[in-house]
Design a protein around this nucleic acid. Structure first.
Lengths: 198, 198
DNA sequence: CGTGCGATGTATCGGTCCGATACATCGCGG
DNA sequence: CCGCGATGTATCGGACCGATACATCGCACG
């Protein structure tokens, strides 16, 4: 892919958890990845030179391609988990690439995230319990809303963990919620996706 | 307050929406505020010089105090709203200081936030509707979770807006949820808090 | 038929914030 | 009495954002 395309893909994949990656971050990063040997510059595929001639005259537009070392490095990165793996953004990025890892890694990350959110939840309960009278009504409402989000996320994580343990795909049919959309046929169950061809 | 104390206060107030402010951000900011004349350095109150003598020998520990211009500037800042007022962090910061503004400002910001979240929600519905087959099960689950969070936040905002319109405090008694805590007596209704003594 | 505008595309620059770190004192328990 | 965690101020490098510049393509509208 070229930079712009990559940004669009990442925005579609990560749009639920963070804003689009800025150009000031994207292009320097691509150069760093290339310097490290994890991606290479592939020619802008003129596509038999007569097909789509308008694009052939297009300048710029550098197409990159991941290398073997790059794939290895990527696998390392999503498999290894530090504390930053469990914060909001870090977890979202890992989760978005869960289909690229093994079940053990997925379970490890889900449980680490659950622990993190549980700690945050306890902190909020402390504030709401103890220091409640020191804070105004709006601040308290903010804490309540945050606490509610924590509780919901813990429940969500627990469903995912249970699904993972039972080897099922993460369908989560949303038991009693206002369901309506049912056209969503479950994609191939992402267990041990080992073979991906470049 | 001095820097460390300020950080603790802000962490308690904003802990639900963002991480603690870093020192690399806190201290330079305090100096900038002082240079702009919005805060002044107050002496470290030796407190009759014989009371708590251990602290008197303490070096460092600069205590700051907001000035009249600072208060004015602060009022401007939370009253004016741009696009960054409606993103996650910006809205949280404004909301945490809602008790310091008037009802018109609160309504304006709540409605702007609702519009922002509704747009995000529509974007997620588009992804889940159209490009669903191009994404793996985990990515889809991430979008579903994000969509759910959007829907809940819209409902939350609507309750707050209704409360605001009716002039009530933002108690939000949480209609059918697993209530239990009832010790939370509602703080003074934050309408037009105009007089605060330094 | 042209003209303007939005999408596509690469690139840089200044500024802000984070994360790590350094350093010092205080209070407390072992 | 010694160490360790909380309190407290401070700096530095690096990462990232937001704005901006610049160029081309395709399409709609007058």
């Amino acid at each position: 892919m070229h930079g712009y395309e990559l940004r669009k893909e990442l925005t579609a994949k990560l749009g639920a958890i963070r804003a689009a990656i800025s150009y000031g971050s994207l292009y320097p990063t691509l150069r760093r990845l290339q310097a490290a040997g994890w991606i290479t510059e592939a020619a802008e595929t003129p596509a038999t030179a007569e097909e789509v001639p308008a694009l052939t005259s297009r300048r710029g537009r550098v197409v990159y391609k991941i290398t073997a070392e790059g794939k290895e490095r990527f696998a390392q990165l999503i498999a290894q988990a530090g504390p930053e793996t469990y914060d909001d953004t870090g977890f979202g990025v890992h989760f978005a690439f869960f289909a690229r890892t093994d079940q053990a890694t997925r379970l490890r990350i889900l449980e680490g995230r659950r622990r993190t959110i549980e700690e945050r939840r306890e902190g909020l309960r402390d504030v709401l319990g103890r220091a409640a009278e020191r804070l105004d009504a709006y601040t308290l409402e903010l804490q309540r809303h945050g606490l509610d989000a924590c509780e919901r996320e813990v429940r969500w994580l627990e469903e995912l963990i249970a699904n993972e343990r039972s080897g099922r795909a993460p369908t989560v049919p949303q038991p009693g919620t206002a369901g309506g959309r049912r056209d969503n046929n479950s994609p191939p169950p992402p267990g041990e996706s080992r073979k991906e061809r470049p």
